[in-house]
């Protein structure tokens, strides 16, 4: 029963995506909508990304210092471990899990409300491909913005690590800088961006699917928002395993 329902849901998702990835009816309106979504989904997410990344960077630095302090361990390891955690997992996967909550629920509730208030029917009656009009700009906008958010997150995390070193004196900036530069591989930044692009697609498409297929009223919209965040998170974690395996080999 569960498997049959999952296959049916996946089939409905694929059919919706076929309608989403069609040629927009008006390039001008598509650009206008995409710019609006860049602000709503991308620019508006910058403060939370900076805030969380800053504090997580600081906390990782403290934890590393406290847990791996050893006479045999070089001091720069703290900076090295902080960089690796921020680059490889936090700024892509964990940040996207946070965005799944913020952006995903926003998308589901917006499109779901449009569905239950007949705004999507109004678009269809006008002869507009509503799936393309509503979902494609969101997917495009978040995919375009996610590399910037990843870079901001990495930078904020490292600034957080420096800040905790400076304010508490647990590390000297030189030790931290040494660790941050130790065996640095540029490919890790690309890995982080590539993973985040896949996660951005998951967040926007899955959240839109839940919103677009809502039936009922406000309670169902709320339920769809919750379901969409849960599904996005699970899919991001699953995709993280696959992508990490593929990219880090």
């Amino acid at each position: 029963m569960f498997i049959a329902k999952s296959i049916k849901t996946f089939g409905s998702y694929l059919l919706l995506m076929r309608r989403v990835f069609a040629r927009p009816e008006s390039g001008r309106i598509f650009m206008r909508q995409t710019m609006r979504e860049i602000f709503q989904l991308g620019i508006d997410s910058i403060p939370i990304v900076l805030l969380i990344s800053f504090f997580i960077g600081a906390v990782i630095c403290i934890q590393m210092k406290l847990n791996i302090e050893n006479a045999w361990m070089p001091k720069f390891v703290v900076g090295y471990a902080t960089r690796e955690i921020m680059l490889l997992e936090f700024s892509s996967s964990i940040m996207c899990l946070i965005l799944a909550g913020k952006v995903g629920s926003n998308i589901t509730s917006e499109i779901g409300t449009m569905r239950v208030t007949q705004q999507i029917d109004a678009l269809e009656i006008m002869g507009v491909n509503s799936a393309n009009f509503l979902i494609m700009p969101k997917v495009t906008a978040l995919i375009a913005m996610i590399p910037i958010l990843v870079i901001f997150s990495i930078v904020a995390g490292i600034v957080g690590a420096y800040a905790i070193g400076f304010f508490t004196g647990i590390m000297t900036p030189d030790d931290l800088t040494c660790g941050l530069q130790y065996e640095f591989q540029q490919w890790y930044i690309w890995c982080s961006i590539i993973k985040a692009i896949f996660f951005a697609y998951i967040i926007t498409s899955v959240a839109s699917f839940y919103g677009y297929t809502v039936e009922g009223g406000s309670i169902e919209v709320g339920k769809a928002s919750t379901d969409s965040v849960v599904s996005c998170s699970a899919l991001i974690l699953f995709a993280d395993i696959v992508l990490t395996q593929l990219l880090m080999q």
């Binding site: 449009m114 007949q118 109004a122 009656i125 006008m126």
Partner: peptide, 15 residues
């Protein structure tokens, strides 16, 4: 559908 106009029960204006 471009030859049609429709007034919905809830007006369905875009918020």
């Amino acid at each position: 559908r471009r030859e049609m106009g429709m007034l919905f029960q809830s007006a369905a204006l875009f918020d």
